[in-house]
């Protein structure tokens, strides 16, 4: 497991460097340029690691399909991050809510959910009878309650129109759907090597949800370079690490030892 430990160390160093960057804030008022570009790079890295995991299986297998759809979902999020950066850096439009960037982010959700669906098809575990699944549902109820506090201020905000409200709240709803999917995958893979990478990926999605709740709460008051951007950065780092960890753990799966027999 040396490579996965090294990978974890790299992720840890990058997270600490990112935190220092947000404390230091180089370029002053123009720090948003760095923040915008950084998240674009991290989203692309995350997509590449998704493809790296996918290449192990190919499209014909269920796992291959799952990983490809997850990677494509991340690719659209990368397009969303890129479009947001173009709006802010090249066009000088600050925080373009309800723009082409949102369209790209939204396009990523069904693809990501399709990936989760194929992942679930691998085990097809009947989750409705599972106690662990009920525990996950309970956790989801708590998360929905927490999210509600991110949604209410957006609904009550008189500065945003209906489209902007729907866009912002939609992210929280989409994240919750993905989190539910990830939780189901973790429960169905418990006991196997796949559970760990899925725990890492779910942690990434939880961070996205927290960032989206924060974004929804701030709504029009949000500016790039805000501390919640850190959560998106860490989210992409963890997604990349989750895919890397997955590929490494598959490589290290041991082959069963043949029984000792006499001459065959």
């Amino acid at each position: 497991m040396e490579k996965t430990h090294a990978g974890l160390a790299v992720v840890g160093i990058l997270i600490i460097a990112d935190i220092f960057l947000f404390i230091w804030r180089p370029l002053g008022e123009n720090f948003f340029i760095i923040a915008d570009l950084l998240v674009v790079v991290l989203a692309f890295a995350s997509f590449l690691f998704g493809l790296y995991a996918y290449k192990l299986h190919g499209f014909r297998s269920l796992q291959g399909k799952a990983l490809l759809f997850l990677s494509l979902g991340i690719f659209f999020w990368f397009l969303g991050e890129s479009a947001w950066a173009v709006y802010e850096i090249a066009l000088g439009i600050e925080a373009p809510i309800a723009s082409f960037a949102d369209l790209m982010w939204y396009a990523g959700y069904p693809l990501f959910i399709a990936g989760l669906y194929y992942e679930w098809k691998i085990t097809r575990i009947p989750l409705t009878k599972d106690r662990k699944f009920l525990a996950v549902l309970l956790l989801m109820a708590v998360l929905i309650l927490v999210s509600w506090y991110g949604i209410i201020p957006t609904v009550q905000n008189s500065e945003t129109d209906l489209l902007e409200k729907s866009v912002v709240i939609g992210y929280v709803a989409g994240d919750l759907a993905i989190m539910l999917g990830c939780s189901i995958i973790i429960v169905s893979f418990l006991g196997g090597k796949f559970a760990k990478p899925w725990i890492i990926i779910t942690m990434a999605i939880i961070l996205t949800s927290l960032a989206d709740i924060g974004y929804s709460y701030l709504s029009t008051a949000y500016e790039t370079g805000n501390w919640i951007d850190l959560l998106w950065d860490i989210d992409y780092l963890l997604l990349a690490y989750g895919f890397f960890y997955y590929r490494q753990s598959v490589k290290e799966i041991e082959i069963p030892v043949k029984k000792k027999r006499g001459v065959e």
Binding site: I122, T123, I125, S188, F189, L190, G191, G192, K193, F194, A195, V250, I253, E254, I255, P256, K258, K259
Partner: peptide
């Protein structure tokens, strides 16, 4: 024995029960 080995191998991926 062959099938046991298959189950052992796949179990490493997705858990023994599945």
């Amino acid at each position: 024995d062959f099938l046991d080995e298959c189950v052992f191998f796949l179990g490493k991926f997705i858990g023994d029960n599945a």
